[in-house]
Design a protein around this nucleic acid. Structure first.
Lengths: 345, 345
DNA sequence: CTGTTAGCGCTTTCAG
DNA sequence: CTGAAAGCGCTAACAG
């Protein structure tokens, strides 16, 4: 059958305890003995039984990364960076198995994965992206995270606002400022009739970006234009653009929930024969790789997804100290490209 | 401390075995008893210890999905679909924890994850996307998969050619035909000087697509144009386009390794003031969501990523029977859009 | 239908 | 520095 630690011990003529010690490298072992053990391990092609170690040691090397949509590069980039940060620090020993779990934005699945990770006695859990604002769900997540924390699982929030009552290191994106900068830019260009394609309702990301937008309008004394809510996908942008134009045919600019939605908006405008930015300016959010390939290239707000993800990974590993008060706000940066210009006179 | 099965048993006034039985639902238990147990579980907020169950039962509910680049929607879409297929079949019991592991295209990391998954006694492993053609690495992977298979882990290959000697259900993309269709399309349009931006060397996907391209040229008696190798990212396309044009300034069409690379090619052409498809036609591969948003929209080859991923998930779960001989070839479909047109006379 | 009894393979005091 | 022994929490025969 499968090779066990006892087999290795027998072959190396030492006790199981000694084998365990050289494998974990957390206890002094004579060099000669270690050699023999290592050789036996290789000869037998021994692979430790993870569940058994986890059970005995009451910890595992599993790290869970929860994402809302794995097919969306926004999450893919962050998750990839997080997973990359795990690999640092030598091979083999102490290596963490960083795995990503796709919640699809569903609260049930989020909780389910958290439970599954709790069951596996995960070493750490990273929650990425905006969260649902439903109080009931928030309470459930908070409770679950508390349970995880007290069981020794490190919890970190990446690209998500802090959760009151949860002892989690948090890396929050400054979506509000990003939203404000974008609209200020449009305002400075001379736009006064700006449509807004918001993301799904009840999501922190949606709300914060919209708040920034409104703050900019309010500060400039400009009335809010038409606003719609929808998904974070291209199709949502297509639908919304037509809806917005129906609500106000005089629109000179459209701000989208993110770059993907913005591309949908662009497609809809083109279909109607409107030029960008000649007839209508369009702006996105996130600065995903696709933003620069749009024609014209998309004006957007850059979020340092890669850096944030990597940092979250280090926090999960305990390699990096948590920020003061457990919260770091990641700045958002306006990136002006060709899709925005002054409105037609 | 943490609640154990014994605590639940004590509270429900039954034996631990009975609790285990109602939790796993694989053995008859009196309705009244079950009720009491369930109530105790809820009152105590009991969460089973995964490692302990896995150790005792010698299996786990972990399913690993290996991808080359999680930030690439090509993999994100497949992985998401695979993970989605896991969720079907009720909640809770028998639920698999599908997790995605990012190898970054590195053979060492691929092997490392396979070992880690082996350690966890994973229920199944899904390898997605093209593989490296290095004989040594292939042998190592084959050996590792054999070890996994004999330990009861189901292995499925998705979007990757079959591995001789591995008892793995395989869903292979027909990259060769896809490549041929694309070049035939260009040939039919009248192109005779076609540049090719291939993917990384030593990868099955790269080789198959290129073979299809060459087969089409050979069948038409047209000489092969300049060819370069590079990554699967946008930057590779930028560099390659300039290189190709240097090698043959009279080029009238460029075929790229995939859509992302094609977008890079488009960007480079635009920078040089060349129009698409007026001066040069461009084609991609995969039909990722971004392909349709390019201007002009990209002619490409559609691969049913979602379907393939979902099917891989069912195979991993054992919900679907393996295809005859363990191999199914997934067809590729030509999608003609605006980025290709007859060459300028 | 339910309880008893052994382990699963590894880690970890506690002695030597 | 090394060995012996006692579990970690759960499952799976085997009896009743």
């Amino acid at each position: 059958m499968t090779v066990t630690l006892a087999d290795v011990a027998a072959r190396a003529q030492v006790s199981p305890a000694t084998v365990s010690r050289v494998l974990n490298g957390n206890y002094p072992v004579a060099a000669a003995t270690r050699e023999r053990v290592i050789q036996a391990v290789e000869e037998l092609d021994y692979v430790p039984n993870g569940p058994a170690s986890s059970l005995a040691a009451a910890t595992s090397d599993l790290v869970g990364i929860l994402v809302n949509d794995i097919a969306d590069p926004f999450f893919g980039i962050m998750a990839g960076a997080t997973q990359g940060a795990m690999g640092e620090g030598g091979t083999g020993r102490g290596e963490k198995l960083a795995v990503v779990c796709n919640t699809g934005g569903s609260p049930e699945r989020e909780l389910m994965y958290l439970t599954l990770l709790q069951r596996q006695r995960a070493a750490a859990v990273v929650l990425t992206g905006g969260s649902l604002e439903d109080p009931e769900h928030l309470a459930a997540v908070t409770a679950k995270l508390a349970r995880l924390t007290e069981a020794g699982t490190r919890v970190v929030l990446c690209g998500r606002p802090p959760l009151p009552g949860a002892a989690a290191a948090t890396l929050a994106f400054d979506n509000r400022t990003g939203g404000r900068l974008l609209t200020e830019h449009l305002l400075a260009l001379g736009h006064r009739r700006i449509g807004y394609v918001a993301g799904p309702e009840n999501r922190t990301t949606t709300r914060h970006r919209l708040e920034g937008h409104r703050a900019a309008l309010a500060a400039a004394g400009v009335a809010e234009g038409p606003t719609t809510h929808g998904g974070y996908d291209r199709a949502a942008g297509l639908v919304a653009a037509n809806e917005l134009l129906r609500m106000d045919p005089e629109l000179t600019a459209v701000v989208a929930a993110n770059d993907t939605v913005a591309l949908g908006v662009c497609a809809a405008l083109r279909e109607r024969g409107l030029s960008i930015p000649g007839d209508v300016s369009v702006a996105g959010f996130d600065d995903l790789p696709c933003a620069v390939d749009a024609v014209p290239a998309l004006t957007t707000v850059r979020l340092p997804l890669h850096e944030a993800g990597a940092r979250a990974g280090r926090l999960a590993l305990g390699t990096e100290a948590a920020p003061p008060d457990g919260l770091a706000t990641i700045p958002a940066e306006l990136v002006v490209r060709g899709s925005t210009a002054p409105p037609r006179a």
